[in-house]
């Protein structure tokens, strides 16, 4: 390899400086590593972890009842007492977790057949097309998809029109089932992709062996395929569960219902920051617990 010397020869001073800097880094790999990591870890540490810490502190800070301003370092448990004494908060928490679980189960049921078809029946060319077809909508704007569902679900929308011949009215925009449908729709590709990858990894010989030994389709699925799919199901459920758990736009726009996210959003919009901060701890704790469980099921190797 040739090293062009021409233009740099004019800048002897700068060159020697840059030489000195890089040769120092060459001689000190640990220092190089620290320099590489300083920026990214500093950013995530200061901007993100720092913000999470600030949020956590807010939960324990008092609020001036007159001006509504948060008083930093004036410690109190008021926000937690406020949450514990109002049964609405626990109803909302249970409703949110319930819907998030329901969405996860729905997505597993919808994802299994298409993932199975993609992994084991479709020709390689068709498989490629199906993969793109499933992946693309994942990147179409989240808000736009929610908006599209609003137009479908509203009284005079597509669904009402399609159901009219059967004498059924459109659901309107204040049914909790809407949140279940729309959340299942939004996160479905996140479930299809890991299940597809999991099915693709199961060797054909295993299924043939099961058939040779007299296992019928149903039994082969239950005894051979399903146990091997558990890590993939757990991986997919991380997305379907956590994204449903934290959502506040879907319940607001299609179901006129309150989720955990709405409580956080509404309280912060009303200036009740300590309660918003205290309630934020709930989805974080639920999510960390969920991640720990799914990690035991091998989900992290299938992400």
């Amino acid at each position: 390899m040739s090293i062009p010397e021409g233009p740099r020869a004019n800048l002897p001073q700068r060159r020697s400086l840059s030489r000195r800097v890089t040769s120092w880094f060459n001689a000190h790999p640990r220092a190089t590593l620290r320099t590489l990591l300083a920026g990214p870890l500093g950013w995530i540490g200061l901007v993100y972890l720092g913000s999470l810490l600030v949020l956590l502190l807010h939960a324990f800070w008092a609020k001036d009842s007159f001006t509504g301003k948060v008083e930093p370092f004036n410690w109190t448990l008021d926000a937690f007492i406020q949450i514990a004494s109002n049964p609405v908060y626990s109803t909302i928490a249970l409703r949110t977790i319930g819907i998030a679980l329901l969405v996860t189960i729905t997505d597993v049921l919808l994802a299994l057949p298409i993932a199975y078809y993609m992994a084991r029946i479709a020709s390689p060319r068709k498989r490629g097309l199906l993969l793109v077809a499933v992946t693309m909508p994942l990147w179409a704007s989240y808000l736009v998809k929610v908006y599209a569902w609003r137009t479908i679900l509203q009284g005079n929308g597509f669904l009402g029109w399609a159901l009219a011949p059967f004498g059924i009215e459109g659901p309107g925009l204040s049914e909790i089932t809407n949140a279940w449908i729309v959340l299942s729709y939004l996160w479905l590709p996140y479930m299809i992709l890991p299940i597809y990858a999991g099915l693709e990894r199961i060797p054909n010989s295993l299924l043939e062996a099961s058939a040779d030994l007299g296992g019928r389709a149903g039994m082969t699925f239950r005894r051979v395929i399903f146990p091997q799919l558990i890590p993939a199901l757990a991986a997919g459920s991380i997305f379907t569960f956590s994204l449903s758990l934290g959502d506040y736009i879907v319940p607001d726009l299609v179901a006129d219902a309150k989720f955990i996210g709405n409580v956080i959003y509404d309280n912060s919009a009303l200036g009740n920051f300590p309660v918003a901060a205290a309630f934020s701890i709930l989805p974080v704790v639920v999510m960390i617990g969920y991640l720990l469980v799914t990690r035991r099921l091998g989900a992290f190797d299938s992400l």
């Binding site: 995530i44 956080i264 912060s268």
Partner: peptide
């Protein structure tokens, strides 16, 4: 793991945390 956190935790938590700081 640290880099995944901002999209793994609910958006509303990330949003309110950043806003509060």
């Amino acid at each position: 793991f640290l880099f995944v956190l901002p999209i793994a935790l609910p958006g509303v938590v990330t949003g309110i945390a950043l806003q509060s700081s």
